[in-house]
Amino acid sequence: MSAGEHDEERWLVIDGRRWRRTDPAIPEELAAALRSHLGRGRSGVRSAKRAGDEEAIAAARRRVGLAKHGLGERGPYWWERPEPERVADARAALRDLDALPDPDPLRDD
C-alpha cells in the first residue's frame, strides 16, 4: 500500500485543513481519558482567556498539549513508531495529566 492510500487513516480534513487522527492503537478506555483531559484543557483555555488570566491560559494549553501528544495527534507521527512505544507514551501522558491540579475543583467526575 502506498503512503497516499493510508492518508485517510492518518489525517482528517476539515474545511480544507488537515488534522492528524488519534492513534488507533491506543485502547479506547485510555483514549477516552485523554480526550476528557483534552476537553477540560480546551474549556480551560476559553475560560482563562475570558478572565484574562495568562497563567491559567498557559496551564490549560499545557493540558491540551499533553493530551494531544498522548493521543498521537502531536509529536512524532504515530505510524512511524512501534505500537508498544506509542501506547506506553499515551499511558505516560495520562499519568502526567492526572498529576496536574484539577482546573475545575467543582467538577464532579
Rank of each mutant, 00 (worst) to 15 (best):
A58Y: 11
R107A: 04
G39A: 15
G72F: 02
D96A: 01
L38R: 13
P82W: 14
P24L: 07
P101Y: 01
S43W: 13
R46A: 09
E28Q: 13
A93K: 04
L34R: 07
A33S: 06
L71F: 03
G44P: 03
V45I: 08
K68E: 14
A59R: 06
E9F: 11
P76C: 02
A93G: 04
D102G: 00
E9V: 08
R62Q: 07
A58V: 15
A33M: 08
R20H: 09
A88T: 14
A60I: 04
V64L: 00
V45S: 01
R10Y: 12
G4F: 14
R62I: 06
D108V: 14
A60Q: 03
K68G: 03
H69R: 14
D98C: 01
L66C: 08
R95I: 06
D15Y: 12
D108I: 08
S47Y: 15
D15A: 07
A31H: 06
E55N: 03
A99C: 01
V13A: 04
P103V: 00
R40H: 14
P24D: 12
P27E: 12
M1I: 11
V87N: 05
E8C: 04
T22N: 14
A90N: 03
G65R: 04
D23W: 14
R46K: 14
I26S: 01
A60H: 02
G41K: 02
A88N: 10
D7R: 03
R63H: 13
S2E: 14
S2N: 13
G75D: 12
G72S: 00
